[in-house]
């Protein structure tokens, strides 16, 4: 447990020591800010047909940002340790491989959650500055942030896995991006493809429509199970990859 906490803390503070993390955060907040300002201009025209959270989380801009941001957060995690050789000191410390993988994942997830916290200000702005608008419902609010957390977990775990595969951060980032894009586009087949089976599978994978549902306040158990089990699978695979040095 000590080992887990030590690595988690090191990973989290590591983000605050690297300029890349600040750039990613600034980029993310600019995009979210732009989405929010669009949202405000939509609301200014009168009552809208969709919920506020739907506008915030359903935006294509949000998704493009997610796809760029996750690789930037995860590419370093294992690849950098392998490149610099510190993986050897890390793995010869009295800590299990599983604890290291979980701690790195927890570090990335904590930073991801930290990045989201400034967006809570938008809710206060909506609540206190829009005169004729009802405050955002707690359901869509909780659903939207839960969706962002669940999808973030799954994508970060994919990024962690890709980072464990290589000692090159660029390769890790590109593989993560490709894997996420593939999953994301597979989800969009729902809208464009013909054939019932393809559409049915695609609908289950579609993070885009999951997010729209979540931010409507409808928390379906199927996507929740999908993201949690997907995360567990990727973390398990990462532990196996880290252990794989033992198979050589």
């Amino acid at each position: 447990m000590n080992g887990f906490l030590a690595v988690w803390r090191k990973e989290l503070t590591g983000y605050f020591l690297s300029p890349a993390a600040y750039i990613v955060t600034i980029f993310f907040l600019i995009v979210m800010g732009a989405i929010f300002s669009l949202l405000v201009s939509v609301l200014a025209e009168g009552p809208a047909g969709v919920t506020v959270m739907n506008l915030l989380f359903g935006s294509p801009f949000f998704w493009m940002t997610m796809l760029a941001l996750v690789p930037a957060l995860t590419m370093r995690l294992f690849a950098e340790e392998k490149r610099s050789g510190t993986i050897e000191t890390l793995m010869t410390a009295p800590v299990t491989d599983t604890a290291v993988v979980l701690a790195k994942f927890a570090g990335a997830l904590s930073f991801y959650a930290f990045m989201w916290t400034p967006t809570l200000i938008y809710l206060f702005i909506l609540r206190y500055f829009s005169a004729d608008m009802a405050p955002p419902d707690p359901g869509p609010l909780a659903g939207g942030y839960l969706g962002a957390l669940l999808i973030g977990m799954f994508y970060l775990s994919i990024g962690l896995f890709c980072s464990a595969l290589t000692s090159n951060q660029i390769v890790a980032a590109i593989t993560t991006f490709a894997a996420m894009l593939l999953l994301f586009l597979a989800g969009l087949l729902d809208y464009v493809a013909r054939g019932d089976l393809v559409q049915a599978v695609s609908a289950h994978l579609s993070s885009y429509s999951h997010m729209l549902e979540f931010s409507r306040g409808a928390i379906d158990s199927r996507p929740v199970v999908y993201y949690l089990s997907g995360t567990a699978l990727m973390l398990f695979a990462t532990v196996k990859i880290v252990e794989a040095r033992n198979w050589k």
């Binding site: 030590a6 590591g14 020591l17 690297s18 610099s84 050789g85 050897e88 000191t89 890390l90 009295p94």
Partner: peptide, 26 residues
């Protein structure tokens, strides 16, 4: 154990690194 070429985390401060390793080693 000190591996060959003495790998360290270049972006950390010496005290930070030693604190991290001390906690990691229990």
């Amino acid at each position: 154990y000190l591996p060959e070429n003495c790998p360290l985390y270049g972006e950390m401060r010496v005290d930070e690194y030693l604190r991290f390793r001390a906690r990691l080693k229990g």
